[in-house]
Amino acid sequence: MKILFAFPSSREAAAVHLKHPPLITGAGERAGLAVSERLHCERPGLVLLAGLAGALDPSLRPGSVVLCRQVTAPGRDILEPDRFFTEDVRHGLRTAGSSFVYSKLLTLPEPAATGAVKLQLWNEHGAGAVDMETYQVAAACAERRIPWIAVRTIVDTSRQALPRALRRWQQPGDERSAVFSAMRSPWEWPAYARLGLQYWTARKALAEALPAVVRAARQTRIVETLEVL
């Protein structure tokens, strides 16, 4: 079985060493389109979406690993990953002693910027973490009946407000304007520094979690073409 590895950005993909280039989806609707296009050309046995996320669950810390149980988006139905594969991975991770939570993800068109917004989203949706891609990727997979699973690691906590420039972040290309904006607001530099450290923690956790996810899958499923590591 072939696994298609998908990451929202090349920065997130760079956290792990892959034999073959993964699919870089981008954020929002673009993510769904990217996956649809790839699935038009090939039919993998599984799509594995991996990346970073913000916490809504107050018990999650930077670097916490979230294995997706469900994904939702405002005004949309709930989508579920491949149940059997997810169960295999969940059991495998637990047996291996890996620390993770098995929770719901929420996909939004923009970052969840403040603690108050995150609290409202938590009360309303009960999602452990928020991202900008999983729902679109899951919908694209569901449309073509391709099983999918998603793994996220946490960057910012549920109470943490993002620096102002990052609140408008949409795509990797927006980083440049964010950097310029950050340079003009030195009072936010401590927040950027903190977020930077959390980003590296999350990226490291992703690098550690992803091989463990694949190893867990390997124990219970026959994976013929293993592209990772």
Partner: peptide, 9 residues
Amino acid sequence: EWERYGYGR
């Protein structure tokens, strides 16, 4: 498996 239980989980 405590992490499996709770709101959202």
